[in-house]
Computed example of a mutant assay.
Amino acid sequence: MSKPFDMELFLAGVLTGSHATRRRHVRQAKIIQAAIAERWQRDAPWGWQRKHLAWFLEHRLERCSAATRYYYSLTVQLLSLRLQKTWKFNI
């Protein structure tokens, strides 16, 4: 039996800002994680590729407002930073 991945601990090193901002990033990262796990069965961000995050931004958020897509793109940038990748996304 494996322990569920702790997204809050994963992002702790790169999170800055107010408590509400940090909470929002963690909540959004968990939503991203769940969507990628459902689609590709990749629970931990260590196994993610650029295409997984690009898919989330392009397809899962296609009916969301521009503001929502923007805030999720900030969370994706934090995930990329934490993974030490230089991924760029067109939002």
Results as ranks from 00 to 15, higher is better:
54 A>V: 08
40 W>M: 11
39 R>Y: 04
42 R>M: 03
44 A>R: 12
50 R>M: 13
55 W>V: 07
48 W>Y: 13
39 R>K: 02
36 I>Q: 05
58 E>N: 09
38 E>L: 07
62 E>I: 13
41 Q>D: 15
44 A>Q: 15
38 E>A: 11
64 C>N: 03
44 A>E: 12
33 Q>I: 05
62 E>N: 08
60 R>G: 01
57 L>E: 06
46 W>F: 14
41 Q>E: 15
48 W>F: 11
38 E>V: 05
55 W>G: 04
36 I>N: 07
60 R>D: 03
38 E>K: 09
46 W>I: 14
46 W>R: 08
50 R>S: 12
33 Q>G: 12
62 E>F: 00
29 A>M: 03
44 A>W: 02
39 R>H: 01
52 H>T: 12
57 L>I: 07
41 Q>L: 15
42 R>A: 14
34 A>W: 07
40 W>I: 00
43 D>E: 12
31 I>N: 04
32 I>C: 01
43 D>P: 03
51 K>W: 10
42 R>C: 08
32 I>P: 09
50 R>Y: 05
49 Q>W: 05
44 A>H: 10
37 A>N: 10
46 W>T: 14
59 H>E: 11
30 K>F: 06
53 L>D: 03
61 L>Q: 07
60 R>A: 05
32 I>A: 04
64 C>A: 00
36 I>D: 03
31 I>A: 10
54 A>R: 11
39 R>T: 12
